[in-house]
Amino acid sequence: MRLLVTDTTWNIAGLAHAMGEEGFYITEAATGAEVLEYVASAEQNAVIIDPDLPDMEAVSLITRLRTEYPRLVICVVSRSVTEADRTRFMIRGADDVIEWPCKRAEIAARLRAYVRRTAGFAQPVLEAGDLSVDIDQRKVRFGDMPIHLTRLEYELIEMLVLRGGAMVSREQVMMQLYAWQDEPDAKIVDVYICRIRAKLAAIGAGTEVIVTSFGQGVRMPVLSRPREVPAAA
């Protein structure tokens, strides 16, 4: 998942690093204007806002983000938040207000839960036949067998899963994996797809899990939450 962090003061100096260690792809913004620029130019799964923005009020940024990007996860993180501020942020559209520092695993879990629920998935484990993707644990399995993916291979799978079967262009995939970094040739997407398909085929999962369409992009069939097994009578 891609996470945009407004690292504007020492209050959240270690948060971006901590979330990076939790598996998020991090982009840091120094101002509210940079937040708007980054969100407009590439897909972000979630944004963490420091209330002490140097160029605008946090409530104004939250309001604009919520209006223009209704599915974007927005969290405010601060060392000190009054009850009045908390209420104001939530009313303007923030999904959560988190006091920092707290356990980084807790923040990561909250963010992942908000992202998958925004995408329409109530449960963290999604299934397509015998293939399952655990978004919270960042694991992919076929039946009882784990599928060992590189970080970028997993990010590609996760991005497609969260799109719910919609077609994703190669340009969108590249921006998700390499935003604001040195990007390789766009053909690298085909390399990743070939590698994932080979790993799936090696354990009998089949290669139709990832569907490519010339000139349009890539998609995965819609995954569903695991079926509940009825209790024995």
Results as ranks from 00 to 15, higher is better:
Val5Asn: 05
Val5Met: 00
Val5Ser: 07
Asp7Pro: 00
Thr8Leu: 00
Thr9Pro: 11
Thr9Trp: 02
Trp10Leu: 13
Asn11Arg: 12
Asn11Gly: 03
Asn11Gln: 14
Asn11Phe: 01
Ile12Thr: 13
Ala13Thr: 07
Ala13Lys: 14
Gly14Lys: 02
Gly14Phe: 05
Leu15Gln: 09
Leu15His: 08
His17Arg: 15
Met19Asn: 06
Gly20Lys: 01
Glu21Gly: 11
Glu21Ser: 09
Gly23Asp: 12
Gly23Ile: 09
Gly23Glu: 10
Phe24Pro: 04
Ile26Asp: 09
Ile26Tyr: 08
Thr27Phe: 04
Thr27Gly: 00
Glu28Ala: 04
Glu28Pro: 02
Glu28Leu: 07
Ala29Asp: 01
Ala30Asn: 03
Thr31Lys: 03
Thr31Ser: 11
Thr31Arg: 02
Gly32Thr: 03
Ala33Met: 05
Val35Thr: 13
Leu36Arg: 13
Leu36Ala: 10
Glu37Arg: 14
Glu37Asn: 11
Glu37Ser: 09
Tyr38Phe: 12
Val39Phe: 07
Ala40Leu: 06
Ala40Cys: 03
Ala40Val: 03
Ala40Gln: 12
Ser41Leu: 15
Ala42Met: 08
Glu43Asp: 15
Glu43Thr: 14
Gln44Tyr: 02
Asn45Ala: 14
Asn45Gly: 13
Asn45Ile: 00
Val47Arg: 06
Val47Met: 08
Val47Gln: 09
Val47Asp: 10
Ile48Gly: 11
Ile49Asn: 08
Asp50Val: 02
Asp52Phe: 10
Asp52Cys: 07
